[in-house]
């Protein structure tokens, strides 16, 4: 095999990947903002102060206040925390259930595979919004509702990625060699398959994280997500919509926050894909 590329260490390449760097910056911005909000926000947001409403940007309120007099920046910071926690747990649910299911489908084949894939189809037929609507009917609206609805939708996504990755390895001789070494299917999956599809899963996780942020925003815009006093970007947009004609900036900030975080995690995922892509790695061989 002809190779024309000199080997470059992944970290060195990371610094050269523009999308990775931009993604890392944007995602860190949101993550740090959300993290700080755990201890400190510029102003408290659980008390309404109507006298203070609809202020423009000032040294007191960097981004102004909303129609109830709450500090926008503080709301955005708490919103960052809300959406990241919801999206993270949802990704966790997807990984926890989806990956074992996908691996099971890939290794057992036959009826088990068919059952897993059909279940996948079934879940795909319920967009997160519909699941959320059903769960709301059951439990009422709330953050948990959003987490479950988005998490359920993540399960088949990860199942698919895990199955596809495992299948692409299935013809490899090193798996046969492992079987000749008397290793059980479970051990081979843990020792050989999982580490080799970890890259795919990491990349997918960042993508699902950004999709989760989008979905959380959508649900809370409809009022199906986290409830007050917890701030969330989606509901900020919903409240801002009625004020569009007088205070369009209220709709601007939360939207930008969503775009920045989704863009950040997407770019991060793209960058990671480039860095971890087995095809690129192979070329470096």
């Amino acid at each position: 095999m002809d190779t024309f590329e000199a080997p470059i260490h992944p970290f060195r390449r990371a610094w050269k990947s523009r999308s990775f760097l931009i993604g890392l910056c944007l995602a860190s911005l949101i993550l740090i903002a959300g993290f700080i909000s755990l201890f400190w926000t510029p102003h408290a947001i659980d008390s309404l102060n109507v006298a203070n409403r609809l202020q423009a940007s000032s040294s007191q309120h960097w981004l102004g206040t909303d129609q109830y007099g709450r500090d926008i920046l503080s709301m955005l910071m708490i919103g960052a925390r809300t959406s990241i926690i919801v999206a993270l747990i949802a990704v966790g649910i997807g990984l926890l259930f989806g990956v074992p299911l996908g691996l099971l489908a890939a290794t057992k084949r036959g009826l088990v595979e068919e059952a897993v894939m059909r279940t996948n189809d079934l879940i795909f037929a319920f967009p997160a919004i519909l699941s959320a609507i059903l769960i709301t009917a059951l439990l009422g609206p709330g953050a948990v509702n959003a987490v479950i609805a988005i998490g359920i939708f993540n399960i088949p996504v990860f199942a698919r990625v895990a199955r596809g990755g495992a299948l692409s390895l299935s013809g490899r001789d090193f798996l046969l060699a492992a079987r000749l070494s008397g290793k059980s299917g479970l051990r081979i999956t843990l020792e050989h398959v999982l580490p080799n599809i970890a890259n795919l899963l990491i990349v997918q996780a960042t993508i699902q994280l950004s999709l989760g942020i989008l979905a959380e925003a959508g649900l809370s815009y409809l009022g199906l997500g986290p409830q007050p006093p917890l701030a969330s970007w989606g509901r900020m947009l919903n409240e801002a919509q009625t004020m569009m004609a007088f205070a369009p900036q209220l709709a601007l900030y939360p939207g930008l926050a969503i775009v920045v975080s989704v863009l950040g995690f997407n770019l991060l995922g793209d960058g990671l894909r480039d860095l971890l892509d087995p095809r690129l790695r192979r070329r470096i061989r």
Binding site: A217, G218, L237, M244, A251, I258, V259, V260, V262, N266
Partner: peptide
């Protein structure tokens, strides 16, 4: 397209309305 993907459709809708 990267920005397009990151755009929540309902926010985009609100901007269009504005």
């Amino acid at each position: 397209t990267q920005v397009g993907i990151a755009l929540p459709n309902f926010w985009f809708a609100i901007l269009l309305v504005y």
